[in-house]
Design a binder for these strands. Structure first.
Lengths: 241, 241
DNA sequence: ACTTGCCCTGCCCCAAGGGCAGGGTTGAAC
DNA sequence: GTTCAACCCTGCCCTTGGGGCAGGGCAAGT
């Protein structure tokens, strides 16, 4: 008959763990020897190994306790569920690992294939790396929260910047302009015209939804400069929103 | 600017979780609106997504907080460590799943290949299923706790039962015999003789070690019948231990 | 007789939130 | 005008699976 410390070493578990299992009714308290020490037999070791197998699989101790009084049928069913749960958790961890690697590579999350070239274009056209990174994160947010509308919004945006004249205006003027520079009015007019051309008289996708995310993003972009804030207001007014 | 509930829904997390991240300094407290509600921007959402990616990878929140003030070098290094840790955890879970399936199949743990046929032989020779199961669990214990000596002990034991005469004695007599049946003496003599033959005058592997596990197992077996208890004592005496 | 290494119980502590109480806000419906 | 549901706020206690410590009792070698 071995002591609690020996049992703990054999099974690879702490003494405290065994005592907890006694307290919670997972493993019955064994008889004590003359000096009050717990004395264990081989059957206790076997029971403890079984308990650990389940506990390491993530089964709550209370559930393990209940399984002690389950029929064989219930027990097998429980084991099947635990197995499936384990499979799901392994899959989840692998997905997490994938996201982690995206994070390590500087990407917040994978984006649709068409966004990558657009971001590279931005860099090539002279937007600052800081700005490109912000754009990437914002698009992550849009694709994560509004997968249905994100693609349309993205094509709209990238189509706009595909026009070299508009692009040049963005690049040259908007960023470090005074808020009352008259060229902002010109820029706003050109953008409203281009937008009207794209959508005709129909509704404008950015403005019809009550969703907050596009507004949130516009706010973040606006926060970078008073000039952009005024530009946004002018465009909004020009489109009659 | 969105509220805490909207942010929580977008990122797929509970409101409480966000508040906890504020309390622990993971995510800075945003400004409040006129009625004291927290108001979040897109950058908060981006930061929260990053935090969740790490938290789901099992990184403690305190560590995530510290990473906020790490250099890029440290950050990349930390991500590599987390990735490796994740790989290890996935491997561990797969191993656990394997052990779980052994458990579902009625085995406590995988045993060396040679043990399986031996257990099947036991069943074929007429030992009760209950007894065979006990034997399997006991061997699991021996192989788990004394991998170095388990194989020798096992070959010794299985060799003994390979002798049909000895086997028959075990089977017919020992189990439901009175403790003072004279045939036990005969049986003990035959076993000591066979053991001496096997090992000559050298040391006997079962008895030399101070390890408790073999004694534990012998005790468990003895507990099943007074006759076996006496048989064990006779063998011990006969071998001069 | 001392020391070292076990063992005992009872207590408080941790992370990562969950849940509830008690109270204020907002917006829409009646 | 009020009432209702759906939000938000803070503060507090609860949970799981143990870890760790205090304060004390055995065991065994030297």
């Amino acid at each position: 008959m071995i002591t609690i410390g020996q049992l703990a070493r054999y099974v690879g578990v702490s003494i405290k763990t065994i005592r907890v299992y006694h307290d919670k009714g997972l493993l019955p308290e064994p008889d004590r020897d003359a000096s009050g020490y717990r004395r264990y037999g081989a059957n206790d070791a076997i029971a403890l190994i079984k308990i650990r197998t389940l506990a390491e699989a993530g089964v709550p101790l209370a559930r393990i306790r209940d399984l002690r009084s389950a029929t064989d049928e219930e027990y097998q069913q429980a084991l099947r569920e635990i197995d499936q749960d384990l499979t799901a958790r392994i899959r989840g961890l692998r997905a997490t690992q994938g996201r982690l690697r995206q994070l390590a590579a500087g990407h917040l999350a994978p984006l649709p294939a068409e966004v990558g070239p657009y971001l590279e274009d931005l860099a090539r056209w002279g937007f600052t790396p800081r700005w490109v990174d912000l754009q990437r994160d914002l698009w992550v947010l849009v694709f994560a929260t509004h997968p249905d509308r994100a693609t349309a919004l993205f094509r709209d945006q990238s189509g706009m910047l595909a026009d070299p004249a508009l692009r040049q205006l963005f690049l040259d003027h908007a960023h470090d302009l005074d808020a009352d520079d008259p060229r902002i009015d010109t820029l706003a007019r050109r953008i409203t015209e281009a937008t009207r051309q794209r959508y005709g008289a129909g509704e404008l996708p950015q403005l019809d939804a009550e969703s907050e995310i596009p507004a949130l993003i516009q706010g973040t972009v606006n926060a970078s400069s008073p000039a952009w804030r005024r530009l946004d207001a002018l465009i909004r007014a020009g489109l009659g929103a």
